[in-house]
């Protein structure tokens, strides 16, 4: 099976606290913080988007992979906030890292699952022998409508993975996918903000797909929660991954390393992939990791990884995910509104 040869993440420097958002809308910050287990979220600067974050995360992944970018045969960027409606993010990324022109590019979109599906496809291509290396990125500068619950969580970040035919730092033991048509969250063409179906996004959407996918892949590989050192779930807020973990029988300790959402927010396509980069940052050779993404609409990709001895060689070659998370500058709502273009400007 394929493996992760190199990995890297990127987090913009700006953060906004839940209190700062709640203050503007007269909302009760403590209940949001308690109910969603969210403290703050990352905010991209005006000069940062999915493409720029993908490039920076990939530089970190390449530093760990130590491969010639020209050998990358596929570049897949998963996002629901590609900067262009029509024109690929992947070609800019491929050009920036020197992977062009003999490379296959595609942009993926599947709400918060686009990043893991880029990984999924790269693994398939590597296993099939179609490519020597594939680059899979999950990145988003997600938007939540002002005053909506999503505004407290919609964040920005990216994770990048170089996938190859060798085990690399983490061997892919198996993959699994679970999909249904479930309209829990969507954004129509030309709409600026997404819409969601409130509490319907919970039980029949997030929880059903993640538990089904997790159970499906564990059955497939004949493993139980206790067999894993770590588990990473999609993190739309701080609470859901903890709850779904408990439902499946995982402990807090297994979830903790990849549980970034309380101080990062939901980076959508970057969410579970960044949870994985943070987990790889602390994993030891031989550790088994379960990752289950979730994308509204709806579906989950499941992965079982076995960490190899190589992890100790590459871990410190690029910044660790939590180091990136710790570098922060708090901004006020006005600056946030300016950066996220929520202010109507003159022509």
């Amino acid at each position: 099976m394929a493996g992760i040869i190199g990995y890297g993440a990127y987090v913009p420097r700006n953060r906004i606290k839940v209190e700062e958002i709640a203050k503007v809308w007269g909302a009760d910050a403590p209940s949001y913080k308690r109910g969603l287990m969210l403290q703050e979220k990352s905010v991209p600067s005006p000069d940062q988007d999915v493409i720029t974050m993908s490039v920076e995360a990939t530089k970190h992944a390449l530093a760990r992979a130590q491969i010639d970018p020209a050998r990358i045969g596929a570049v897949y960027v998963g996002s629901e906030s590609h900067p262009y409606a029509v024109k690929p993010s992947g070609t800019v990324l491929a050009e920036a890292i020197g992977a062009t022109p003999e490379v296959h590019c595609a942009d993926f979109e599947f709400a918060c699952k686009a990043g893991s599906e880029a990984m999924f496809v790269c693994m398939g291509l590597a296993d099939a022998g179609s490519i020597e290396y594939g680059l899979a990125v999950g990145a988003d500068t997600s938007q939540g409508a002002p005053s909506d619950a999503l505004e407290y969580s919609a964040a920005a970040g990216a994770a990048s993975f170089i996938i190859g035919r060798d085990p690399g730092v983490a061997k892919v033991i198996d993959t699994y996918a679970f999909m249904t048509d479930t309209p829990d969250f969507w954004r129509r063409s030309y709409m600026h903000y997404p819409r969601h179906a409130g509490r319907f996004t919970g039980e029949p959407a997030y929880f059903k797909h993640i538990t089904s996918c997790a159970n499906g892949i564990m059955e497939k590989v004949n493993m139980k929660p206790k067999d894993f050192a770590y588990v990473v779930f999609h993190q739309p807020n701080g609470k859901f991954p903890q709850r779904v973990g408990k439902m499946l029988g995982f402990t807090k300790e297994q979830i903790e390393p990849g549980w970034l959402s309380p101080t990062l927010g939901n980076t959508y396509s970057g969410s579970s992939p960044m949870g994985l980069t943070a987990t790889l940052d602390v994993a030891k050779p031989g550790d088994m990791i379960l990752m289950v993404s979730y994308g509204s609409g709806a579906g989950s990709d499941g992965f079982v990884f076995e960490v190899t001895g190589k992890i100790d060689e590459v871990r410190n070659v690029a910044p660790r995910t939590r180091e990136l998370l710790d570098k922060k500058k708090y901004i006020e709502y006005g600056t946030y509104a300016k950066y996220r273009r929520k202010i109507r400007m003159g022509e």
């Binding site: 600067s45 000069d47 940062q48 988007d49 493409i51 720029t52 490039v55 920076e56 900067p83």
Partner: peptide, 8 residues
């Protein structure tokens, strides 16, 4: 300083 890739 170091260089980062950004939107200009």
């Amino acid at each position: 300083v170091r260089i980062e890739f950004r939107k200009i």
